[in-house]
Design a binder for these strands. Structure first.
Lengths: 103, 103
DNA sequence: CTGTATACTTAGCAATCCTAAGTTTTAACC
DNA sequence: GGTTAAAACTTAGGATTGCTAAGTATACAG
């Protein structure tokens, strides 16, 4: 079975890329100094599930789209980031191209 | 502020496209007849947050990727679906194309 | 070995969800 | 417009899960 919860792997990858610790990330998104380490570690080990607001703050801090955390593999995760950086016109054009391709 | 929870809008769109009721969707993914209507409605109204396992079963039943439920607008949601249908080779090529484009 | 930074674990309380039952809305039909 | 059934929605409380705070383990520099 597929890893049920994709958040741990995504979170770790994006945090490492940003070169910050679990606690630093937690504090940056508004957690208490005293609980940031434990909470962030729970999320990264998959023991607890963060709520949407927390996910959004992490996404913003790590410069990834919210849906990044729910991608099941590295490739689709990178694609999600790349697509989030396109402007709406570019996104529309890409969607049209993909639609043609699948005919 | 952006709608904090994108699930309700995505869930409704995908369910309508599949032309089934809230209860039907719930039963199809293994909920009890007696509670399927209430539970699915909670999710679609944003009152409760489904767990990852439930999200996965909904995604499979509705033929969308898991990250679809966390896209913040229709355009990126459709793109997520289109990309999920590509094979890995096509995905890799697309990622390379997007990387060039952003230089 | 000692001190420090980072990662990880645990347990009880607090917050949230699941269930079951009931209510409201929608839409088709006469 | 009134009737009916299906669909959508709401509520309350017991059950489940997450948050917090405190502690432990590991890695590494001095």
């Amino acid at each position: 079975m597929l890893n049920e919860n994709p958040i741990p792997a995504r979170l770790k990858a994006a945090r490492k890329k940003a070169k910050i610790t679990q606690k630093e990330l937690g504090v940056k998104i508004g957690m208490e100094e005293s609980s940031a380490s434990g909470r962030m570690n729970h999320y990264e080990k998959g023991r607890h599930m963060p709520d949407i607001g927390t996910l959004r703050r992490m996404a913003q801090e790590l410069n990834v789209p919210l849906n990044y955390f729910f991608c099941d593999d590295d490739l689709s995760a990178e694609l999600a980031c790349a697509i989030a950086k396109l402007n709406p016109e570019q996104q529309t054009k890409l969607l049209e191209d993909l639609a043609k391709q699948s005919d």
